[in-house]
Design a binder for these strands. Sequence first.
DNA 1: CGATATCTTGAGGAATCTCAATACTAGTGG
DNA 2: CCACTAGTATTGAGATTCCTCAAGATATCG
Lengths: 245, 245
Amino acid sequence: MYPFEDVRFRGIAPQAESIPCAACPVREITVCGAFQGKDLHRMGSIAHIVRFDAGQTIFSEGECAEHVFNVTSGTIKLYKLLSDGRRQITGFLTPGDFLGLAMNEIYAYNAEAVTQTSLCRFSRRRIEALLDVFPKMQRRLFSMTSNELAAAQDQMLLLGRKTAKEKICTFLLMLSRRAARRGQRENPVIVPMCRTDIADYLGLTTETVSRTFTQLRTTGVILLEEGNRVRVVDMARLRDLAEGV
Amino acid sequence: MYPFEDVRFRGIAPQAESIPCAACPVREITVCGAFQGKDLHRMGSIAHIVRFDAGQTIFSEGECAEHVFNVTSGTIKLYKLLSDGRRQITGFLTPGDFLGLAMNEIYAYNAEAVTQTSLCRFSRRRIEALLDVFPKMQRRLFSMTSNELAAAQDQMLLLGRKTAKEKICTFLLMLSRRAARRGQRENPVIVPMCRTDIADYLGLTTETVSRTFTQLRTTGVILLEEGNRVRVVDMARLRDLAEGV
DNA sequence: CGATATCTTGAGGAATCTCAATACTAGTGG
DNA sequence: CCACTAGTATTGAGATTCCTCAAGATATCG
């Protein structure tokens, strides 16, 4: 049987009931890719599908880390706050990404839905127990965490040493490459997050983000299309600008 | 028998020959803490002790990742470069830290000795093979990587949203806490790295680092003592300044 | 004790931020 | 179908932090 919808959240979307893990759109690229047959069924039996609307909080820093999640659709932002409200978004998650990774007793950051989102939720305790039984799963989780760490190091380079223009170009490239990796179109880059979120991700202000987009548009690197889409006119130039060449 | 010194590197220090893994000063806090008795012996049999002088490169970005390391003494910096030479130090490693963590085929960053350093070196291929045999080790490595990821997220908050003064205060606190965790004195903070390294770690210039130290000194928060030591006069104030209160 | 590297200090400049006003967009109700 | 509203994005002008360039001070090491 397929995992129950959590009653605290929104009504079940049509596909939520009918798609078993075997047909999960992100299974192959996420931690569940380590399972097959009976094991996959076992995973499914402890999973709950939960949904969030844009802007809803999934969990907050300091809360007891009861759950871990797989993103199955939508975009999520992770962020940390300073006491006066300054915010740093540490990452955007998309389908296939794992959430709650730190595996400590307490969440060390906030997670909030950027768009409408659905997640596959697990009890952290149960998943940790499974790690000892399924080394493959642990291996996969470890590998995913390592990749995240590498991405975090790239982001430190961006935050510490890149200019506003380089930051924006790097950001657009990241979105484009991520879409391509998921088999989506890489060129009209879909930007689901608002200027404030982009600013808080890149260590800038919304005004600077806006001005930089305008500058890239007037210099013929991009076109700002409707529906939060950015058409890259000169991809090679965008790549150069991202690295400061 | 204790692991051989690698002949490509400097002469064996006295303790290198005489201390078996069982007496390793960092065993309990590093990945090897997962082993005992025969298993520990097996780890030791595939380890090589290597030493580096301050300034020597341990490995470079883009190189084939043949080895992984445990730091047993000294301080190491990890950094990434932009094509024009701008540098971001992504972390400083001290005894007990693991190096080469990404476990990809290629190192994604540079590692260089800040002080004289000794490392316990392993073949990456062999360690990966051990991961399947010793889930405890994998669990430990995963846990260490998760901690590093959490630290990276803190550093993103620092780089993206903190002022120069907050950055320096956070940095001093980090060094102090790290020393305390290792059982060393926490108050005269030992700062083994030069101003340029601090600047490249915090996303500042050496001049700004220097000016900020001076400002903290003249406002009575710290004292600059000889031997790269910083005496914290007002720890509570330092903590407040680090968070922007 | 001199040479070299590192650190500190100063003056001016540039990138980015802040504050403020205007334009745009999407959703809502008439 | 259009006007209204609230949120979001853009643009402008001035302020500020931090950087750049340059010189002087200090520390380190043979």
